[in-house]
Amino acid sequence: MQHRHLLPNELDLLVDDEAGFGMAPLRAHVESCAECADQLAAAQRVAGGLDRLTRFAPSPGFANRVMAQVQVIEPWHVALTETAKGLVPRNRTLRVVMATTAALLATGISGAAVWLSLRTDVALYLGSSIAERARVVVGDGATSLARTLLGEGASTLLGSGPGVLIAGTVGLLLSGAATAVALRSLATASRRTRE
């Protein structure tokens, strides 16, 4: 039994209804001390009043006002997954046909790749042919564009060694910028329609 009045923090422990070692003597004291019992009752009354405080609601339309200022953006990887899911037909038969076609295509491409890897001479020949063709197409296109935009001098420069280097660098930068813009557009386009 405790022979002194309870300290304020001890009253707090009782108000919080704490359990554990040391609480029993406090409770025993309150039962035998009218003054502390009165203090505790007052503290519990205030705590009870606080516990019964209600939550207030904001004015109607609060959620709409919030949502009007929130950017709901679907991440690009989610948009991509969702788009891919959208391409899968709902009909089971169609899904089977599509999967079979995809599997056949994949098998065919893999088979061709394996065959090409075994026939290095053919692979090298095809690779160099494609690269040469691409170089000619890109080079002609760039020269024609430069002539149109900058005149004959620029097209001559483009035909020279450093010119090709410059054109290649510019081309790389432009394609990088185009990729960034395309990704950004994809993210923006995926913004969800407001419900």
Binding site: A63, M67, V70, I73
Partner: peptide, 10 residues
């Protein structure tokens, strides 16, 4: 919400 679902935001 992190996947861009507006109903989750709401």
């Amino acid at each position: 919400a992190q996947r861009g679902r507006e109903d989750a935001f709401r």
